[in-house]
Simulated scan of single mutants.
Amino acid sequence: MQQICVLGSTGSIGKSTLDVIARNSDRYHVRSLVAGKNHQLMLEQVRQFRPEIAVMADTAAADKLRLAVKNEKLKTEVLSGAHEIALAAAESAVDTVMAAIVGAAGLLPTLAAVKAGKKVLLANKEALVMTGSLFMESVKQSGAVLLPIDSEHNAIFQCMPRNYGEGLGKVGVRRILLTASGGPFRETPIDVFPEITPAQACAHPNWSMGRKISVDSATMMNKGLEFIEACWLFGAKSSQVEVVIHPQSIIHSLVDYADGSVLAQMGNPDMRTPIAHALAWPERIDSGVAPLALADIGHLDFYEPCMRRYQCLRLATEAASAGGTAAAMLNAANEEAVDAFLVKHLRFDKIAEVVDFTLQSLPVARADSVDQVLDVDRQARILAKQQIHRLSHIA
C-alpha cells in the first residue's frame, strides 16, 4: 500500500489524482493532502480519503477546516503554512508525492520531496523551470525518482529508451517533438487579441484546466515552459526540441530516432492517463479514461507555430537558450501578467509585452542557489508589476 502526499489536492491535477487513487484504493492510501484556500473542497476530500494530515497554505482557511474536522469528529490533523507543507512532502511515512501546486509556490515543497528521496510525480513545471540544474542535481544526489505528469512530458518519457540519461545522441534519439493544441485562439485574427476576455482565454477547446494554466495555454507560454522543462528532464539541447501544433490533442508528443523511427504516445485528452501511468510505473492500472476511438477522430493535423501569434512561446525558447536565471525571470513576469489579466488590469495582448520588458530589464546570471533564484523571482515580479501599472494607465 503506497502512501501518497498530494500537493495541490483541490486543483485540477489534484482532483484527477484523487479520482485515480479512488479507483485503485487497494494499492494507494492518501497520507496527506495540501491545498491553498479552498477549505470547503478540502473538507470533502478529508471525508472521502481520511488522510492523517491536511495542510492549508492559508491560515484562516486552516482554522475553518480544523473546526469542521473537529465538529465531524474526523481524525485528520489540520496544519497550515509553507513550513508544514514542505514537512508533509518530505515526511518519512510518505512514499510518493504528487507535486501539483501551481506556479512558483510549488517550488520549495517539491524540492523538499526531491531532497527526501521520494517518488515525485512532477505536475508543477515551474519548479524545474525556475531552478533547472539545481533541481536535477538534487534528484541525482537524493536518489529520488522523478516522473513527469504533463501529458507531453509523460508521453516523451513513455517513448524514450530507459537509458536516455546516458545522453540522447548515445541512445539514438535525434529530436523531441513537443505537441501543442494551439489553444483557443489558434485561428483568431491577431488584431482582435486586445479584446480577448479572461472567460474566452480560459475556455480551452480540449483540456479542462485551472484558470492560470488555461491562459498560459492560450498564449502558448505553457508550451514555452514545457519546452524548458523538456530540456532539463531529458538532457536535451534547445536545438533538439521542436514544437508542433496538433489541434486534436490526441498525439501527446513524439520522439524521433536516428534510424528514422518516430514513436508517439496517443490517448484521449484526459490527465488521468499520465497520472495513472506515473503512479503505477512501471506497471499499468485503470485510470477511468475511455478507450481511444480513432475512427471517430478521422484525421490528425500538424503545423508549425507562428511566433508572431505566440510571442510568449518565442520568449520562452529564447530564455531556454539564455540559460541561468532567464527562465526564472520569464516565469515570474508571466505569473504577474496572467494574474493581472485575469482581474482585467491588463489586456491579453500585453502579457507577452510585460514578460519581454522584464527579461530586457534584468541581467541573466548563473543560477547558483535556490535563494538566488528566489531573489531573482522577487526582482522580476517588482519590475513586471511596475510595467503592468504603466500599461494599465495607457488609454
Rank of each mutant, 00 (worst) to 15 (best):
27 R>I: 05
80 S>W: 09
129 V>D: 05
322 A>T: 14
344 K>V: 07
229 E>H: 10
55 V>H: 06
195 E>A: 15
335 E>Y: 08
329 M>W: 07
83 H>L: 14
377 D>S: 12
356 D>E: 15
173 V>D: 00
329 M>P: 04
210 G>R: 03
52 E>T: 10
221 M>K: 10
65 L>S: 08
147 L>R: 04
254 L>G: 04
94 V>H: 13
113 A>S: 04
321 S>L: 13
245 I>F: 02
211 R>V: 11
263 L>G: 06
285 I>Y: 07
51 P>C: 10
291 P>M: 09
344 K>W: 03
346 L>H: 01
157 F>S: 05
122 L>C: 03
26 D>M: 05
22 A>E: 07
274 P>F: 06
209 M>K: 14
302 F>P: 13
57 A>N: 11
13 I>L: 03
172 G>V: 08
201 A>D: 11
305 P>S: 04
234 F>W: 08
29 H>R: 15
223 K>W: 08
264 A>K: 09
40 Q>V: 14
334 N>G: 08
114 V>E: 04
295 A>V: 13
267 G>K: 09
66 R>A: 15
208 S>R: 15
287 S>M: 00
186 R>Y: 05
321 S>E: 15
352 A>V: 00
370 V>I: 13
341 F>D: 11
234 F>C: 03
46 V>A: 12
331 N>L: 10
308 R>D: 15
271 M>H: 03
7 L>A: 09
191 D>C: 11
261 S>T: 14
15 K>C: 15
119 K>D: 00
234 F>E: 02
273 T>Y: 06
49 F>A: 09
194 P>D: 04
237 K>M: 13
20 V>A: 12
113 A>G: 10
346 L>K: 07
119 K>F: 05
50 R>G: 10
159 C>N: 03
37 K>Y: 06
62 A>E: 01
77 E>N: 15
260 G>Q: 14
294 L>S: 08
46 V>K: 03
256 D>T: 01
217 S>M: 07
142 S>K: 08
114 V>I: 14
28 Y>E: 09
66 R>I: 04
366 R>P: 13
217 S>K: 02
110 T>M: 07
184 P>Q: 07
111 L>M: 14
255 V>Q: 05
356 D>Q: 15
347 R>D: 12
245 I>K: 00
237 K>F: 13
64 K>V: 08
139 V>P: 07
272 R>F: 08
291 P>Q: 08
28 Y>C: 03
329 M>F: 10
42 M>R: 05
291 P>W: 08
